[in-house]
């Protein structure tokens, strides 16, 4: 019992449940309209390269033409059609972001679990676990851009390098979340109860600790997704992303920078909007899912 006003909300929810009020099922709670932007995005990703008007990697016309009937979103300083690049880039940006989200979350869960379960052991295993935990903490302090630049410079610019690099940058975030959660769950009473029921330590970790500890990391996926889209574009902006002229929103913005300084807004704005749209779309879809699942 706390005097905290916040704790009362839980009690009210309990009262509501206890008084027999039923809550509508998952699918009814799901707000379908919120899925629309993400659906649009997925469609673009799927059919993107087929709905281009011009070849996204070939010069389509004179540079820096304003948006009009011929070029729906104008052309960038090098003469490439902005619209075509935009839709073609959707697939790659989405794919990279999705792979990164999955990779970083999966490795974060595994690593976080291993660290958290072994941290308090004496001996070499415990020492190693603590060492890795510290390293993960510090790894987060190294600027993401720097890590991306370093890895790309070492291993060359390709989609694979990008995926691995960004996943490596973001995995510590998930690892830390999972580790903290594992440490919390370890002291929960139901683990002792499971031991009393004869469950072995390994089964304990897999059946009880893992599902509970992984939840915050899974809840964080929307954030990871958003950040990875931005990071991909940032590296592309710096010229350390995919090899040109692969269409990519970040490098589009880089090309559009010179135009923007002289008042030609289109070659930088549309990719920027595309970035924002992707992040918001996935965020909306994810929150809709989580609200419904609660």
């Amino acid at each position: 019992m706390t005097g905290s006003v916040g704790a009362r909300a839980d009690k009210i929810a309990w009262v509501a449940r206890a008084s027999g009020r039923s809550t509508p099922g998952f699918w009814r709670r799901f707000r379908w309209p919120r899925l629309a932007p993400a659906a649009l995005l997925l469609v673009m990703g799927a059919i993107g390269p087929s709905i281009v008007r011009y070849n996204p990697v070939r010069i389509a016309g004179p540079g820096s033409i304003a948006p009009g009937a011929e070029f729906w979103m104008g052309t960038d300083p090098t003469g490439l059609d902005v619209y075509s690049q935009l839709v073609a880039a959707t697939r790659l940006n989405l794919a990279i972001a999705t792979l990164v989200a999955l990779l970083s979350t999966a490795s974060g869960i595994v690593l976080g679990l291993l660290i958290g379960m072994n941290e308090s052991r004496t001996g070499p295993i415990g020492l190693a676990a603590r060492g890795i935990a510290r390293f993960v903490d510090f790894a987060q302090a190294v600027p993401a851009i720097v890590v991306g630049l370093v890895l790309v410079s070492f291993f060359g610019a390709s989609a694979t390098t990008l995926v691995v690099a960004i996943a490596a940058i973001l995995a510590p975030i998930q690892t830390r979340i999972v580790r903290v959660e594992v440490l919390r769950v370890r002291s929960e009473a139901f683990l002792d109860a499971a031991r009393m029921a004869g469950t072995g330590e390994f089964a304990l970790a897999l059946q009880h600790v893992l599902p509970n500890a992984a939840r915050p990391a899974v809840a964080n996926i929307a954030f990871i997704f958003g950040v990875s889209i931005i990071l991909t574009a940032a590296l592309g902006f710096l010229g350390a992303g995919l090899p040109p002229p692969t269409p990519e929103w970040g490098s589009m913005i880089a090309r559009g920078a010179t135009d923007a300084a002289v008042g030609r807004w289109w070659s930088a704005s549309f990719p920027f909007l595309a970035l924002i749209f992707s992040v918001v779309a996935m965020s909306l879809a994810f929150t809709a899912w989580r609200r419904a699942a609660r």
Binding site: A233, A234, V279
Partner: peptide
């Protein structure tokens, strides 16, 4: 709520467009 997902490079480019190219409030980059 948008924490972490704000592209500084894009904001920079648009900032240049808005505050320099259009409004002339800041000097050239």
């Amino acid at each position: 709520g948008a924490a972490g997902a704000i592209p500084d490079f894009a904001i920079g480019v648009l900032g240049i467009f808005l505050f320099y190219a259009t409004l002339h409030w800041v000097p050239a980059p």
